[in-house]
Design a binder for these strands. Sequence first.
DNA 1: TATTGTTATACTCTATAACTATA
DNA 2: TATAGTTATAGAGTATAACAATA
Lengths: 147, 147
Amino acid sequence: MPNATLDSAEDLAAVNALRMGVLRLSRRLRHLRVDQTMSLAEMSAIGTLVRCGAMPLGELARKEHVQPPSMTRIIAVLQDRGLVRLEPHPQDRRQKLVAATDQAQAILQASRSQRNEWLSQLAAQLDEDEWARLRDAAPVLHKLAHL
Amino acid sequence: MPNATLDSAEDLAAVNALRMGVLRLSRRLRHLRVDQTMSLAEMSAIGTLVRCGAMPLGELARKEHVQPPSMTRIIAVLQDRGLVRLEPHPQDRRQKLVAATDQAQAILQASRSQRNEWLSQLAAQLDEDEWARLRDAAPVLHKLAHL
DNA sequence: TATTGTTATACTCTATAACTATA
DNA sequence: TATAGTTATAGAGTATAACAATA
């Protein structure tokens, strides 16, 4: 059942905290990224490709909320590093299917221990209740970003 | 009591969702900002000044997690628009105290109805449980960004 | 004619290094 | 000598507009 109103003072305060928290955290994530040679946008694109499978460049751009020219550049970098490969679309020769390589999958896997280390340091300063709230909200954030 | 371990598969999955959700949402927030003429960094700086009161430029830069030269530029823009004023530090003539003006406070107030409208549209597509999770996590996100 | 993706170009935001003024 | 802030400069990331190839 959808939430229709959402106009209490508490909701508004939460919205502000959410906005500012996301902004500041994203700025810090930029500096704390595990693979210093890969940008967040590149990491995110690879993650989506691994999770959802190969798709045309335009569709990936829509999923990542960037314009097609921006995705063209992101993909060019990833292709140079052997993390994605481009395949012709079987029915439409205008389109290019972008697919993550095995190496991309391996990099995502390898970075997990580093992510874990960084996150543990940060989360050690949260209590169990705070961490549980983040854990519960993570999939909703994800959904919100796609609405 | 601090959370020491944080190494379960569920935790790792939550970390990934959190990272990606924050990244994507911050990208969308950039485009959905209420005052199209003001950047998120500018909004955030004003919010901090209104919330915490006047402070030296360097301290504001640390709070916002940007370098001093970046804050110099942000403040210059805000000063041109009459949203902050610079005052000499009473004890140390090297420092400049940055203070939000009444106009800045008024702008924050005026943008609230617009924020509400945008958020309502988005939140109408979440159910009550999802929205509650975001509400609970917002202050933790805020804290996490400052750790 | 409409659509997919690319190229050319410019803008925004941020950083580092070098500098000035003050402590 | 160390610190607060500024100026100059460069880099990353993204966008819009114009273009090419295909539907």
